[in-house]
Design a binder for these strands. Structure first.
Lengths: 260, 260
DNA sequence: ACACCAAGCAGCAAT
DNA sequence: ATTGCTGTTTGGTGT
């Protein structure tokens, strides 16, 4: 099932990686390497110890021993080529579209571990911006007692709008830009764009603009008010901070929500 | 140096991970697991085979056997806690700020590999937007034969302006928003914001706005022209090798050695 | 600490 | 295929 080599030689390691790749296994290499990337940009990473992750779909990821993000990577669908150049293991990874290449030179190896991995399940997520928009649709009075959200068809004729509707009494169009976190200047710009678009397309003179978010930056609020728009504070529907007690209950909660 | 376990039992694996963590080694686990994350959002990943990467700085990353991005992750600085719950290895990862938790249950293990990794060198990169802005500063005629870029201090006076200057003959202010790729609607919004800001702050009536990029989307071009701005096509220079910074010297050394 | 912005952004859905 | 936009965005820089 799994195959691990501790402190292998170049040839040994190359054979193991080649084998894993041919068998469509996932493979992790730890070693001292340097990396050259050329594609949409160019980069060079000088000698150091890293983790190299090779997936069977042609994904290749270089991780430094600290930090969240990879130092270098190649997206799924790459080709792999291994060679021994003067005692250095050279891994070339190539992508056709976009045209990119990565060259990893490994001069010392700590381990090469590989295993066939099966995974048919996908991540289930809650707490996104779409969830917040849905919450506003269900609770329109958060925006205004007079606000009535529209159906989706009416929205789509104006393009991508987070939440769209109108004021019941006046019939004025209402556009709401929803942000999951602190709304900033670009959120206001976005709202402004949408408002102008709806004004043009509908011919309505009066289009009201709102930003609904947990918070808004000072400058963004100023810009918002300058344009005659309004801010509505909206807390996310669920408490997302972790509870210390009874972690297991949460798991069963996920299960029941999965089952539905 | 390196330590690998193939198909270990729960207790064995827990001991190895604990040991790696205590020794500040980087550790990779392959196994069948499910993952619950709660923090800025919530997610649940049902049973499947994954790679788990634990770094000594408290980074924890869950990779599915395909795809570029991690399914789940915890950023640097987390605490780790291991336990055996009814024959299932439970890895709890906790972050204080922001308050987040991840719970990984591993019911089968393929390998646990760890090694102490040292890496003092950082990535050197060229071909960013800043490089393109620098190129325009050096070659202002790309924008207009009459365009004279200002020095860097003047750039920062109004905030984050990519390139700022004026027309030599008329004295009109010029603002250039630089994009490394296809300029889109948000790029035009950004330019518009900057132009309005400079108009307000400087009292200048005439402020010219440009987008300099390799390309621009259709709608973005329409919006750009509607506002009276202009587009300038700018291809990134063939050779992006900079000279000033010490770190960057490494890259130019590489390139010149490659070219021979 | 906050605000703002680029990113080899990635990935996804709608056109 | 392109466009537009979200993201547990991340990471960096300037105030």
């Amino acid at each position: 099932m799994a195959e691990c080599l501790e402190n292998p030689g170049i040839g040994e390691a190359a054979a193991a990686i080649e084998r894993a790749w041919r068998r469509k296994e996932s493979c992790v290499i730890a070693g001292t390497c340097r990396v050259i990337y050329e594609g949409r940009a160019k980069s060079f990473l000088d000698w150091g110890d890293r983790l190299l992750v090779l997936k069977n779909d042609g994904t290749f990821i270089v991780h430094k021993p600290s930090g969240n993000n990879p130092a270098n990577w190649m997206r799924p669908g790459c080709d792999l080529h291994l060679s021994d150049e003067d005692g250095v293991l050279v891994i070339r990874i190539e992508s056709k579209k976009p045209p990119e290449t990565m060259r990893v030179e490994v001069r010392e190896l700590f381990f090469v571990s590989s295993s066939k991995l099966h995974d048919g399940t996908n991540l289930v997520q809650v707490g996104t911006e779409a969830d917040l928009a849905e919450f506003i649709m269900q609770n329109p009075s958060i925006i205004d007692p007079d606000f009535v959200p529209s159906n989706l068809e009416e929205q789509t004729k104006y393009g991508f709008l987070d939440v769209y509707g109108r004021m019941k009494s006046s019939g004025e169009a209402v556009i709401i830009e929803v942000k999951r976190y602190n709304a900033d200047l670009s959120a206001v710009s976005q709202l402004r764009r949408y408002v102008e678009r709806v004004r043009n397309l509908s011919g309505k003179e009066k289009v009201l603009g709102f930003i609904a978010a947990p918070a808004i930056t000072k400058n963004a609020l100023k810009m918002l008010l300058d344009f005659g728009f309004e801010f509505r504070r909206v807390e996310p529907p669920e408490r997302l901070v972790p509870e210390s007690r009874n972690q297991r209950r949460l798991l069963s909660e996920y299960y029941s929500s999965e089952k539905q």
